[in-house]
Design a binder for these strands. Structure first.
Length: 521
RNA sequence: GGCGCUUUCGUCUAGCGGCUAGGACACAUGCCUCUCACGCAUGGAACACGAGUUCGAUUCUCGUAGGCGCUACCA
């Protein structure tokens, strides 16, 4: 192997938002490039003019920015191997297609899509290859004059790669080892399309990778079947000695059922399949994104990295730098991985725990706002601020060691709404309520109100309350906490009761208790 | 159908001829406790099947079965 600088690329086509599987492919490319001190190139493969979606390119760039995957060159990143948008490289491809035509590695074919369809209907398993091209309308079966005049008269044509049959083509894959396939099963792939006068993926891919000095092609397994074709193309161009090495990654599979992960799975099971929210400009349809769902980019990256690769030990939580250090293509698994989004949530939980709870406040603010809790004349900004403070204290108790079981900041609301609003109703179906509200409980709560009433507003503190209530408990043998909790919270949640009551204040505490007594009796 | 890839707990995986087959998610139980949660502890749970090779196969080879992908003038 020559000692070339490692250069890899991620080359999406701008046909929509970036799929989460694509994110993983890009991530592996990034990790590999950085580990070897090499470059990651961002190329746009827009050779299918019919599938172009406006906004997709910008979306992809923004997604990687959010994820922390950085490119060294490419569309919007600069570099001296451009242009990096394939639609801007037409002349380059034309030149190389001509080269193949000139040395007989490719030929011109006039068969229309309709004629091909007819052939496919006529002959079972029809394939345009060495066995059939003799009966088709192409430059191999027609005289040069005939071909020239057809072209001169404006007849559309494609350029096809002329595959020599009966050859064993070897693909050396870093992940899968040697893959051998016989060239006879390959068809004479179209390299240059008549419809939009652009090359197909196969041609553009090889030419660009060569010109951009790509050393390793790390892509999804769906490309494995065409890898032999690519090897043959490198050969045809005489570039075998600088041909990149291949690594075909296992695919991401549906969480349940059969098949690979698709957009629909997310809608069905309620998890995003895209990094960012996406609004389809054509259908107006909206797809949720990891960012908007409250995922941290580090968590998404960490989770994705481990779907198909692991560092060979039990470590799961890793920073990007650690992953760069540890990453190893040869340690990638070969079989497809089910997309276990529940574990993805666990990763988010882990990263949320690592952060200081104060970092959550901006997002928590948004949630409060959405729930209608904001600074109004009645509820002074300061009070809201104080409550927030209290909530964060509650969820972030004891130096980050006792955080609630939340995967997202948005999980906070149901866990602490009682700080902000009194229970509307008391659900007798609730297990905790049923268990702790029995005959005589109302009476007991009445007594407790009596005890609490002896304290004035200033005395309504944790310490004073505790003294009073505990003395009463001792004298009467009462254990009022759970029922009291029902009154103030509505269910079995929340912090220490004295703490909560002191926070709510005397008036609110007694108000909630009376209301509970009224409703539950 | 053809071609290729693939196969360890429900899921992600470790294992690279000899292990009580390890970890994580999820699940269950216990401890802690005025509740929830956190935390800690414990538990159930896997080598697809059949032939070889070998003293010995989860590990190597070949079949079979299942899974996945490709089979366009899409990438």
């Amino acid at each position: 192997m020559t000692e070339r600088r490692v250069r890899v690329r991620f080359a999406p086509s701008p046909t929509g938002p970036l799929h989460i599987g694509g994110v993983r492919t890009a991530l592996y490319n990034y990790l590999f490039a950085k580990q070897h001190g090499g470059d990651l190139i961002f190329r746009i493969e827009d050779t299918d003019s019919t599938r172009f979606v406006p906004g997709a390119e910008e979306y992809i760039i923004e997604a990687f920015k959010w994820l922390g995957i950085k490119f060294d060159e490419g569309v919007s990143f600069g570099g001296n191997h451009g242009p990096y948008r394939q639609s801007e490289r037409r002349d380059i491809y034309k030149q190389y297609v001509q080269q193949l035509l000139d040395n007989g590695k490719a030929y011109i074919a006039f068969d229309t899509p309709e004629e091909l369809d007819a052939k496919r209907a006529e002959i079972e398993n029809f394939q345009y290859d060495a066995s059939t091209r003799g009966m088709m309308r192409n430059s191999l079966t027609m005289s040069k004059d005939e071909v020239d005049s057809l072209i001169a008269n404006g007849h559309q044509y494609v350029v096809r790669f002329k595959i020599e049959p009966g050859r064993d083509v070897r693909v050396d894959d870093i992940i899968r080892g040697e893959v051998n396939i016989n060239s006879s099963i390959l068809d004479d792939k179209v390299l240059f399309k008549s419809a939009d006068q652009l090359p197909t993926y196969h041609l553009a891919n090889i030419v660009d990778d060569h010109l951009m000095e790509v050393t390793h092609v790390i892509r999804g397994e769906e490309w494995l079947p065409s890898a032999p074709l690519h090897v043959l193309l490198y050969e045809a161009f005489g570039w075998s000695d600088t041909m990149p090495r291949f690594a075909h990654l296992p695919l991401l599979l549906k969480p349940v059922g059969n098949g690979k992960l698709s957009k629909r799975d997310g809608d069905k099971l309620g998890f995003p399949v895209f990094p960012l929210e996406w609004h389809d400009p054509r259908s107006g349809e909206m797809s949720s994104g990891y960012r908007e769902q409250g995922y941290l980019p580090e968590a998404v990256v960490n989770f994705l990295a481990l779907l198909g690769w692991n560092p060979g030990n039990d470590q799961e939580i890793m920073t990007m730098d650690e992953m760069i250090r540890l990453f190893d293509l040869s340690k990638c698994s070969k079989a497809g991985a089910r997309f276990d989004y529940v574990k993805g949530m666990w990763f988010n939980h882990q990263y949320l725990m690592m952060r200081d709870a104060m970092e959550w406040t901006p997002e928590f603010d948004r949630i409060l706002k959405a729930e209608g809790i904001e600074s109004t004349p009645e509820r002074e900004a300061q009070v809201v601020e104080m409550m927030k403070q209290k909530v964060i204290e509650y969820v972030d108790k004891e130096g980050n060691k006792k955080k609630r079981n939340i995967s997202f900041v948005s999980d906070l609301w149901p866990l602490c709404k009682f700080f902000f609003i009194a229970p509307e109703t008391y659900d007798i179906e609730d297990k905790f309520v049923r268990k702790n509200w029995k005959e005589g409980t109302a009476l007991e709560m009445d007594e407790l109100i009596g005890v609490l009433s002896t304290l004035d507003d200033r005395e309504f503190t944790i310490a004073e309350m505790k003294d009073m209530v505990e003395a009463w408990c001792e004298a009467t043998g009462r254990k009022p906490w759970n029922a009291w909790r029902v009154c103030l919270v509505g269910t079995g949640q929340g912090p220490d009761m004295y703490e909560l009551a002191a926070f709510l204040g005397k008036a609110e505490t007694i108000r909630r208790m009376n209301r509970a007594i009224d409703i539950l009796k």
